[in-house]
Amino acid sequence: MKKSIYPVAALVIILASAFTFVQSQNWKINDDYSVKFTSDDPSGVFRGMKGTINFDEKDLANSKFEVTVDVATINTGNGMKNTHAKSAKWLDAEKFPVIKFTSSSITSTASGYQAKGTLEFHGVSKEITIPFTFQNNVFSSSFEINRMDYNVNTEEPAHGAAVLKVDISVPVSKA
């Protein structure tokens, strides 16, 4: 009986070590992240970022992002604009409370990486590719999004910009 304890203990330690190894690829989102969108009009930020970031530069095949931002946290710097942005006419924060990105594959590129996946925004799910870099434990990305693709106030295409530049910076620490 005593003899069998050691192999079992060894197995437990090996399994636990393996689990720790897998966990080390998970990243915790730090509070000083920023999700900015800019255009001629409007510009602003989102807060309320949550999700899981599983990223290993040496194991991109098993890396995955599943991240949401809270639509109701939009801040354009103007109270009236914030209210309009959250209304049913624009982002409809009540009906579509989050913007969600779920990656399906992550590959390396000449300038960094790119994540292919699904962006769920305003009730529309669309496949997109998001380029990003990962340096000094900070994920940085810059890409464009067309609100018309996501049925955001399609009745007024000329009211505010249709294409918005999105700049994301997400400092992370090992979970």
């Binding site: 900015k36 510009s43 930020v45 801040n75 354009t76 710097g77 103007n78 109270g79 009236m80 914030n82």
Partner: peptide
Amino acid sequence: IAAKLPLDVQNPELFP
């Protein structure tokens, strides 16, 4: 009312 505050200022709707 029309002022655009810095984006790190929370609750701009209370500024007016």
